[in-house]
Design a protein around this nucleic acid. Structure first.
Lengths: 229, 229
DNA sequence: TGGACGCGATGCGTGTCCTCGTCGTCGAAG
DNA sequence: CTTCGACGACGAGGACACGCATCGCGTCCA
């Protein structure tokens, strides 16, 4: 999952970014003012935007309104100052999905971030099940036919992303965009390699391969596995 | 857990209810005035009541007093307006368990709500047990397989925090956040060091390590230890 | 004044990830 | 149907970052 943090207090932004990378394993980009934030947001490759209200150049509320007027429906979590000049109602009317006033609990933020991403993808439950595969996004565990499967962080992130988009073909490009932040320059077969490893682990004691390749288009999780193989 | 929200600002009540459902996964009922609130509260099926002071028909303080006079000991968290007409002392005397003045931090509310519920569940639940580890938060003692384990304050706090979040990956940052008031810039392996010591003590006369490392993500208490190691 | 505790630094071991190279396979065109 | 080109799979290896154990020092309290 890829997250944009728009926050001018560098210190806070860095901590936040680090926490989001470390815990849930998101790819995080940062913007220090509303202008840059808006530009980045416009790319539409984010699964969540965390937006401070008090920003240089363009304030958060304006950024949010602009986004919504351009039909950008990326979930937005607002960070408000303690003395909250903007009312809750104003925020929600502007199209905010959630808000948190500073100082906030990082764990709380992460929980909400995950919830918003889930909601944004049209899911409400933190446990996803496709065929006999079960992904628990709270525990970050994966089970196949009940057995726990141990995945590396990257493998897990790939699977988690795909599980959010059932029945949809996910291109390598899309995976790259959502798994890595914009500092990423290398172009290679990273995804293929990880998919390969992921497949191996998912096949450990099953006989059906749930990750389907669609040549030139991408990958897809197959929802309907044959009962008897 | 079932929570009653008595609040006449519908918008706020809805947000609150949504947050309580989404985050900690509570079942939430709402009442828009003191009268309905009191009726619902009387059913006694709630683990927590969140009560606004300024209410139509019957004000919050009265509702609270009525409840307590009927020996309803459900934990009550009071929401006070910023200009606070009611004093803290008055609230607590009336039997409030906690209070929060508007506008409040939703995360803060949730944290307090959880704490109240824990406390309300009361005397029976200050003891957490995961696998063969038992943490008594009242006595601040830790037992493993019945044997008391002597931990330093920091070690205890780490374990206590983790025990509150079973099966979930707790990142080092999260631990830092909760053990200290603020994060520091410089790289420090405090947590790693304490975890190391904690592990040693937990392993004193067992052979299973309950603290699991998830590289790059954090630590986790394993709930399922192998019976025979 | 001594001991316990917590913090910071260092060296080592290891898991994870990326890259490269080769082989296999799919698809389109003749 | 055959052939050719491009894409993808997958194994091996190296670089790197991460986590762990340990030690010494400062501090606080008994």
């Amino acid at each position: 999952m890829r997250v944009l943090v728009v926050e001018d207090e560098v210190r806070l932004a860095d901590n936040l970014a680090a926490a989001l990378r470390e815990g849930p394993g998101f790819a995080v980009d940062c913007a220090e003012d509303g202008e840059v934030g808006e530009q980045l947001a416009r790319q539409g490759c984010y699964d969540l935007i965390i937006l401070d209200l008090m920003l240089p150049k363009v304030d958060g509320l304006t950024v949010l309104r602009h986004m919504r007027s351009r039909d950008n429906s990326t979930p937005v979590l607002i960070l408000t100052a303690k003395d909250g000049t903007a009312s809750t109602i104003e925020l929600l009317n502007a199209g905010a999905d959630d808000y948190l006033s500073k100082p906030f609990d990082l764990g709380e933020l992460i929980a909400r971030a995950k919830a918003l991403i889930r909601r944004g993808k049209g899911a409400s439950h933190p446990v996803f099940a496709i065929a006999d595969i079960e992904v628990n996004t709270l525990e970050q565990t994966v089970r196949r036919a009940g057995r726990v499967i141990d995945l590396s962080p990257t493998e897990y992130r790939i699977l988690e992303y795909m599980v959010h988009r059932p029945r949809v073909i996910v291109s390598k490009r899309e995976l790259l965009e959502h798994l890595y932040d914009y500092n990423w320059e290398h172009h290679s077969n990273v995804i293929e390699a990880h998919i390969s490893n992921l497949r191996k682990k998912l096949m450990a004691d099953s006989d059906q391969q749930p990750v389907e390749t669609l040549r030139g288009r991408g990958y897809r999780l197959v929802a309907d596995l044959e009962g008897a193989g």
